[in-house]
């Protein structure tokens, strides 16, 4: 029981990564329109059938994996870097700087869920860069809050005080004595963050605010399919299942990681 809960999600995520990275080298024809194939159900020659424009769904699914993977990667990189930087510096400096930064974080946290991302990408216009920007603006706060809370307690640890006494500079202390100790809670935050970002990217694309056609996103594939659900349910089922499997796998591994690292759930 225990083992399957790690092996199966790991396999799915490795497949996701593999397909996302190697997608460019596979002989795919995601934008090749064959009118006679419109909404054709899955068959032996084309495993997942064709969409409303007669494009092969499997090929588009692979392209969509690329979109979600790279958006998730970039958003995690950008938001964790900015968040950790702001959070640790805020806690380290304390005083008015900390007070103001905490207030700013409160303001960002006051936007419910995906709403700020919807507003930002709605105003900036569709496009993959704007999706990354919008989701990073939403995502940094979680990292900053976590990094700040951890730094506040690390600040008074003996090894940090020793480093201060030895005359180490602040950037050096933060880089060598504080940030390395933040890694395990941050890793867990990042893992669950990936699940959220994959759903959010697909959600924005579902609303027509994400990547632009003909680039495929699982979200826009679901949206395009909903109009033909009764005659061609595979157009909605395939991208949705792909999305569910990836998010489920990330969440399952995140749970295991949290249990293993024994970090108190917030």
């Amino acid at each position: 029981m225990f083992k399957y809960q790690i092996v199966i999600p790991s396999f799915i995520l490795i497949l996701w990564l593999f397909v996302a990275i190697l997608g460019d080298f596979l002989p795919l024809e995601p934008n090749y329109i064959i009118l006679s194939n419109i909404l054709q159900p899955p068959s032996f020659s084309e495993w997942l059938g064709y969409d409303d424009l007669g494009r092969p769904i499997l090929d588009r699914l692979i392209l969509g994996a690329r979109t979600s993977f790279f958006v998730a990667l970039w958003v995690i990189l950008v938001s964790s870097t900015i968040g950790v930087l702001i959070g640790t510096v805020s806690a380290w400096l304390g005083g008015y700087v900390d007070l103001i930064i905490v207030r700013i974080m409160d303001v960002f946290l006051a936007f419910p869920g995906i709403l700020l991302a919807i507003a930002l990408s709605g105003i900036l216009g569709p496009g993959i860069e704007n999706v990354v920007f919008a989701l990073s603006v939403v995502g940094w706060v979680g990292f900053a809050r976590l990094a700040r809370a951890q730094t506040l307690s690390l600040k008074h640890r003996e090894h940090v005080i020793a480093a201060i006494a030895l005359g180490a500079s602040t950037p050096r202390i933060l880089r060598h004595h504080v940030i390395p100790l933040l890694m395990s809670p941050l890793l867990i935050e990042a893992t669950f963050g990936i699940a959220g970002i994959v759903i959010a990217e697909a959600g924005l694309s579902f609303l027509g605010l994400g990547v632009q056609p003909p680039t495929a996103s699982w979200g826009s594939m679901i949206r395009d399919g909903t109009g033909y659900m009764l005659v061609a349910p595979h157009t909605v089922l395939a991208p949705g299942l792909a999305l569910l499997l990836v998010v489920l796998s990330v969440n399952m591994l995140g749970d295991k990681l949290r249990d293993k690292m024994d970090v108190k759930s917030r």
Partner: peptide
């Protein structure tokens, strides 16, 4: 686990279907 992982923009269309 399934509930937090299923996107509402997929669950909705499935329920409609």
């Amino acid at each position: 686990l399934l509930g937090v992982s299923i996107p509402n923009f997929w669950l909705g269309p499935l329920l409609i279907l």
